[in-house]
């Protein structure tokens, strides 16, 4: 009984979902930046440093937030003077973790190592991240 009473204010305090565009976007952006650097390293483009992209996320369905498979995140960045924009599809799970899938045309599953000519997994083709779902 005591336990239940303690739960009541917690329930009242936090009925909103933490999975909002304003929390998904920075999480996605952070991982993208990290993996972009990994990808460029894999392609032996050592000169490229970090990119500083703009990222925005939204749901394409009727709901504005919450878990779902209909999230998309668009990312815009400038790399060596070239401006690029890509759209990733996201599955956002209730526990705050998400899986992003890149556009197959620009982010194929595999890349070729220019030095060894070996195929390598493209880190940006599919990747995971998690955001803080705490109160």
């Amino acid at each position: 009984m005591k336990r239940l009473l303690l739960l009541v204010p917690l329930l009242l305090a936090g009925c909103g979902t933490p999975l909002t565009p304003s929390r998904v976007a920075p999480s996605f952006r952070e991982v993208f930046v990290g993996l972009y650097a990994q990808q460029q390293q894999l392609l032996r483009r050592e000169a490229v440093g970090k990119v500083d992209p703009l990222a925005a996320c939204r749901r394409t369905g009727t709901d504005a937030d919450g878990p779902g498979e209909d999230w998309v995140c668009s990312v815009q960045y400038v790399d060596l003077g070239t401006s690029s924009a890509q759209v990733f599809e996201l599955q956002v799970k209730p526990d705050g973790c998400w899986k992003a899938t890149g556009p197959p045309a620009t982010q194929p599953a595999q890349l070729v190592d220019p030095v060894s000519s070996r195929p390598r997994t493209n880190p940006l083709s599919e990747f995971d991240g998690c955001l803080d779902t705490g109160w």
Binding site: G14, C15, T17, P94
Partner: peptide, 22 residues
């Protein structure tokens, strides 16, 4: 939790801290 209907209230569940390592 999987139904996702609880929102932040899911944090009161005993299973949620299993994911705190994220």
């Amino acid at each position: 939790s999987l139904l996702g209907a609880l929102g932040s209230a899911a944090n009161a569940l005993l299973t949620t801290p299993f994911a705190a390592w994220h």
